[in-house]
Structure formats: structure tokens, C-alpha cells
Computed example of a mutant assay.
Amino acid sequence: MFRRGKGIELKSTGEIEAMRAAGLVVADALAAVTAKAEPGVSTGELDELAEQVIRDAGAVPSFQGYHGFPASICASLNEKVVHGIPSKSEVLADGDLLSVDCGAILDGWHGDSAVTLSVGTVGARDQALSDATRKAMWAGLQRAQAGAHLTDISHAVQSAAQAAAKADGNQYGIIAEYGGHGIGTEMHMEPFLPNLGKPGRGPKLRVGMALAVEPMLTLGSAETEELDDEWTVVTVDGSRAAHWEHTVAITENGPWVLTAPES
């Protein structure tokens, strides 16, 4: 969903704390969706649940109506990488891999996070894929340090994904054309954050910046295509995909993961 827009936004300590409040709303919505995502439940039902949690908190879903997007979450099932549109007719089955992306606006500030959920009992390779994507995300988040360069995060994501592939004995495709982004008073802001690349490039990271770090890995080729709905992105080879994301602020004390309840 990234759209290039304004320059890099710096936030005050108070504004970062406001983003934290928005981030916790997103965390609560994803926790509710995670608890309900079982065989027999539709992605449309999960969308309704997420919207209810967000609105009950006094927030607004970031995604609903964004450039015409028709739902409050993106629900990307199996070979869908990102931007899947929830539907009452799309019912979860045992063994599915479901990526859920969610955003909320609270008092003008955005939070954005994604999880990949294992529905029922999934195959070992599918679970390894999700675990590898999550590890890659956390590797990137740890590099969100003042004084580092933007692509230090990118390189950390790539290196962790490649290390996981070697350890798992799998071939993971790293999606290049979609990635992370700046976030704050808008959901998608500069800079665009690739999920692979050489370190030491791009703008220097400064206290007050906030970024969404969101790797997407596949169990095959990294080549993707967009469906006719002009939103849903799928793997060309039909391989399964995983997507994990957190919003992180760069502070004087290091990274603060705003959408992680425990941080």
C-alpha cells in the first residue's frame, strides 16, 4: 500500500507516546483476530472483529477507505502476500497460513502491524516460513538505532532471512517491490524501507523517526503479481507467503516497538 509522499517526519517524545497509544489499539485488534482465527471462520468475520475493537477504543481503522480499500484489515491467505481483501465467502481451513495487516488512527496518529497466523495445524515448512519472517522483522527492528543508516535495517532483514533459510533447509524468496515505510501523521510516509540491500545507505536514522518494518517472505520465487481487484498481491508460482510487521520509534534509548504490547 505504500504511496510516496512527504519528507521524513520527526516526532517529539509526546508525539511518540501518542503513537504508542495507537499502536496498542492495533495490538489489541490483532490479538482478538488471532484468538478467533480458526477453521470455519471467514476473513470477513475477522475484519468485522478488528473494526469493532478499533472503534471501541475510540480509534478509526487506517485501512478502511484508504485509496478505496474496502475493509479494516488486509487478510492474505496462503499464496496471497499482502493487501488481500477480507470476505465472508473466504473461510479458513485447517493448515491455512493467514497474514493479517492492521492499522488504526488515534488522535491523529497511526499504528501499523501485521502477523502471520497458523490456522489449525500447519505444515512444518509453512511454520518455518512464518517463524523466519518474524525473526527477520525483529532483526530489522533491532537496527532502528539513531546514527545508523536506513539500509542497515534492510540488510539486517535480508541477512536474518538468508540465515533462517540455510538453517531450515528452505529457499525463501524475499519480496523486493513491497517493504516498510515511515509512519506518523500519515500511514505511509517517506522513507520507503526495502527488505534487502547493502548496509550504510539511505538517510541517517534520527531520534523522533518512526518506521514500519515489514518483511514478506515466500516458500518459492519472490516474483509477485497483482490480481484484477487491483489490491491483492500473490506469488506468481503459487508458493505460500508470510508477512510480519511492527511500528518502531527511534529514541535516545534505542528502538521502541510501538505495536508490541510487551515493549
Rank of each mutant, 00 (worst) to 15 (best):
E223K: 11
A21K: 07
R206P: 00
H243I: 02
E51C: 13
L258G: 06
H83C: 09
A176P: 00
M189H: 10
H155T: 12
S154F: 02
V91F: 04
S113R: 14
T247S: 09
T116I: 00
W109V: 06
L117V: 04
A50H: 05
G111P: 02
G84C: 07
K6D: 15
V207E: 14
I105L: 15
L205M: 14
E186Y: 11
V257C: 08
P261D: 02
D228A: 12
S76F: 00
L10A: 08
A163W: 05
L219P: 00
L196S: 15
E252P: 01
M209A: 07
V257P: 02
M187V: 10
E262L: 10
L106A: 06
S221D: 11
D126C: 02
G123V: 03
S118C: 10
V100I: 14
A161S: 11
V100W: 03
H149Y: 13
A163D: 13
P255E: 07
V119Q: 01
P199I: 13
G140R: 15
D107R: 11
E214A: 13
S42D: 09
L150S: 10
G173H: 05
R143D: 10
H155E: 07
R55G: 00
E214P: 01
T43M: 03
V248N: 06
Q158S: 13
G180Q: 04
I85Y: 08
T116Q: 00
V257A: 04
L30Q: 03
A93G: 14
K80C: 13
G111T: 03
A146Y: 08
G173L: 04
G108P: 12
R201E: 15
G40N: 14
L92D: 02
M216E: 12
S89A: 15
L106N: 06
E186F: 12
D228F: 04
T251M: 07
Q127D: 11
L150F: 10
P86E: 02
G23F: 05
N170M: 11
T251D: 07
G14Y: 10
T259V: 08
W256N: 05
D126K: 02
M189G: 15
R143H: 13
G184K: 09
S99H: 05
A241T: 06
V115P: 00
P70Y: 05
A167S: 11
L49R: 10
G40S: 14
W109L: 14
P86G: 03
P261R: 02
G108R: 12
G120S: 04
G103M: 05
C102E: 08
S263Y: 06
A37V: 10
A18F: 11
A124F: 09
V207Q: 13
D47M: 03
P199H: 05
L24G: 06
G180N: 07
K204P: 04
V213E: 10
Q162M: 12
A18V: 07
E230P: 00
T133G: 09
P203G: 11
I250N: 07
A210M: 06
K198L: 15
A212F: 13
R206E: 15
L49V: 11
G238S: 02
F2A: 04
G254L: 02
A21P: 00
E38M: 12
F2G: 01
M209I: 04
E230N: 11
S99C: 07
K36S: 13
T247N: 01
A31T: 07
A104N: 06
V41Y: 11
L30I: 08
G123W: 06
G58P: 10
T13C: 07
A164L: 01
W256M: 13
A260R: 09
M137P: 03
N78I: 03
A132Q: 01
E17P: 06
W231G: 08
